[in-house]
Design a binder for these strands. Structure first.
Lengths: 192, 192, 192, 192
DNA sequence: TATGAATGAGCTTTCATTCAT
DNA sequence: TATGAATGAAAGCTCATTCAT
């Protein structure tokens, strides 16, 4: 008879380490989270962590890659398929905010990563391909607002809104919030 | 006779410590910046720091208070004096972005502080009084967008735009950027 | 059907562990070689090592005993059978240097063992029985050089020569080297 | 009033660290000696070590450089000043053995360093300039023995003799030992 | 005020060894 | 026999803070 409970879901240790690390890094930062903290959360010893990752840094990079891949996929499916730039902007805002609501740890992690990680190269910035789309629309006169400004409004709004939501400052229903955001973005991006 | 050169501007050690700490904290985070790092930048020894501050934490809090006070004053003078909510929003965006351009270390510091500091009480959020103003306007039907969304758009846009600017992604003239931002904010906040 | 190839020479795991350990210990020292290093070289896992040896220490001692036994046998056959002390010295130098050339890992291992092992009891010194022979010859006036000096010259020369050879500093043919060494030893040991 | 005793010799911490490290490294090897071991011997904490050396490796290299410099100087003064190759060989053996008697830790350290240190480049070998002198003499037919063999005999004898002496196996007076060694070396190096 | 040596707790990482499978 | 995950102790090193000078 196995030590694992029948009917209970078995989660491999490596996965449990990543989950715990994601939560802790996103809340306390990279230096603020120790390997011991992670081990304690997973209920193993520090040494065991190193059977799955060769360094703390590797855990961080693994998480970063997984999350950016997730978002990249979502954006490809839900945003890049739209025709006009206003719809793309709307879809982007909605997709990101939904992702943040569903994966708050991941979204918080990304913010921390971008702010604190020296190796925060520009290409790692999520959505830099999208900025390109905004610039293209601007060149073709489909967008009147400066592309970087438009981009900042869409992305920045989501980031801020998520923070307010996490702090419990926004108490509005999720669907209402999404609709309001979409509408606001449309105002900025659509032709006058 | 002092070792200090005549004719050169004398900056008290405490001030030099704060400047160095501001820069380092904003770039490398709180745990990522050591007291030794700060001392090296000021060209004194670690021990000397403790003549001016009783702990690393005290430096952080001093900086936070100074910066929020600066911003509070600016908002009071330039934003709260406006009549309608659209003008207030515009002024807020402009004031914050100008501040960020003029004091990039301070603005970056604030971001790091809000993201990493456990003691991130709600009241510490800069502009929470402004959120109140947005809510008031919404109640009085002067604002059609949900106040939290409107607030997020204004603040979030500035934050993102500043990041793009620091990364060298936005190469537009400062004045042009400010005008574009004002205009975009007006679109969101003004009555249809 | 076994995983082992037909026609290829089968070497028992225990033997492969000893070979790998011998090489690694002799090159990187005892503390500098980890059980994992050995396992990797043998292409098994760390745990498997413990099926064959109860501890790292046991591997070390096994190797030491095997090597000293080999040398003891050689000395018995080729050195102790000689009549006079000069011939014995010559034969000793030649036997040891030949052994070193043929078994560089083993010879290097011995050096490391003698230098680093706390339990380097005197009896473990190879050739201590030979020192006795030198002393006896000295008492009987068959040897004019102080026995410990004579012994040191024979053993020390071989050790140094082997190091120079391994470093690629000596490029002379093996046979020439052996002849030169024999001749030099004879000069020291023979009567005026 | 100072905490230091009047009349007692003050030895700077850095020097005390080097002495303790020299002794420990030479007896237990590099991996076998921990920074804590050294700190305990000096009666300070581990952290304090790092105020004087940036790493354990740096301590090792400092010691190596100091010791090789000492020996280089001695060889220059006492060996290279001799005229013929036999006198040089004699002087070399005597100088090295005297040094070993006077600085047993240093001499032992060198042996450990050469055997265990991956970065044991050939140039680091002490006396490689001397090997050159032996080769020169051989080319000019002043030396009949193969230079590498002659060199090995001189250096190797000293090394072995020192080990026997440390183990308490040689109980002869230091002066007698030196004289015997000189005489034996002369036999090997002088023309028949 | 400032220095510089030191402390002590804690960090990331390593490693010999054990054990369920 | 062998695997591979885990342990637990200890390693090298860092760092906020203290203190004698």
């Amino acid at each position: 008879m196995s030590g694992r409970e029948r009917n209970s879901v078995y989660i491999p240790t490596k996965e449990r380490i990543m989950s715990a690390a994601l939560r802790l890094f996103s809340l306390k930062g990279f230096k603020g989270t120790t390997v011991k903290d992670i081990a304690k959360e997973v209920d193993i010893t520090e040494g065991a962590i190193y059977r799955h990752f060769s360094s703390k840094e590797e855990i961080i990079e693994s998480l970063f890659e997984r999350i950016t891949e997730e978002i990249r996929k979502l954006v490809k499916e839900r945003v890049l398929t739209k025709e006009d730039i206003a719809s793309q902007g709307e879809a982007l805002a909605e997709t990101l905010l939904s992702y943040a609501f569903d994966n708050p740890d991941s979204f918080r992690f990304l913010t921390v990563y971008h702010i604190l990680h020296e190796n925060g190269q520009k290409e790692k910035l999520p959505g830099s391909r999208l900025l390109e789309a905004f610039r293209e629309a601007y060149r073709r006169k489909k967008l009147r607002t400066l592309p970087e400004v438009a981009f900042s409004i869409v992305i920045g709004s989501v980031e801020r809104l998520f923070i307010l939501w996490e702090l419990g400052i926004v108490k509005v229903q999720r669907e209402v919030l999404l609709e309001e955001l979409r509408s606001a973005v449309r105002k900025v991006l659509s032709d006058p």
